[in-house]
Amino acid sequence: MLQFLQLVVSGAAIGCIYALIALGFVLIYKATETVNFAQGDLMMVGGFVGLSFMSLLGLPFWIAFMLAIVAMAGLGMATERIVLRPLLGQPAFTVVMVTIGLGYLARGLVTMIPYWGTETHTLPVPYKDEVIWLGGEGTGLVISVEHLVIIVVTVLLVTSLYAFFRFTRLGIAMQATSQNQLAAFYMGIPVRRINMMIWGLSAAICGAAGLLLAPITFVHANMGFVGLKAFPAAVVGGFGSIPGALVGGLIIGIVESLAGFYLPEGIKDIAAYIVVLLMLVLKPNGLFGDNTTKKV
């Protein structure tokens, strides 16, 4: 039982990472009806940016964390402005290909930057390798601080996002844009600028995910492939639903963690994909998704 709980906690922590990346997908999907396949790579860049702030500028972890998020937001907005704005109104597939290209580009470019390169880096976080015991040292539940930080920061981020969408003018404008671009445009909402901000927000969230994940997996150019597991998370939750992304991420994380222990070797890596295929067969719109049939 303890073993089970242990697996659930570590699974939930990884699940939070998937959830954050999935949240990035969902924000962009809701706003523009396209999927950003470079989301995982944005996360990787976030990891590297944070790493540089810490080791090159010698900033403490939390300041580097904040700065990296801001930098990522800037990168996200710049990407939208330069690459995606000209493609506004083109079919979804066009944008998907562009983001695939951007991801490909990012993976190549990162290895060419001096100091980042092809090596694996360790992010020197202050809470490295610390653990907390629940229910008695040596006998109770052991939670590594790395996992705990992931969960806590995710909860904080999601709550503030919720408040942002619920209570701020900008958040409400973003919701309006995501529901009906044209109508929002007619109501005087600057749709393009909103799209840009959504990209910024999405990239910032991914940057945060990258920095949270870094202590566990290290920072390297192929770290972004974790982002591919956020697709199942987003689908399970129902593409386009923010609570769905969270629940989906947690489900994928926990299933994966349990599969790694209880099922034969190799299943862990594909558990997420098996879950998503089951989901697509049983309930294609996901847990929280809305109906998407076309009207004629």
Binding site: V98, L105, G108, T111
Partner: peptide
């Protein structure tokens, strides 16, 4: 000597094509 040279170039080419020559 960079291993990332090829992905970088192909990434750029793809983005360029989609943007300017769909």
């Amino acid at each position: 000597q960079q291993t990332g040279l090829q992905p970088t170039i192909f990434g750029l080419i793809l983005v360029g094509f989609v943007m300017f020559e769909p």
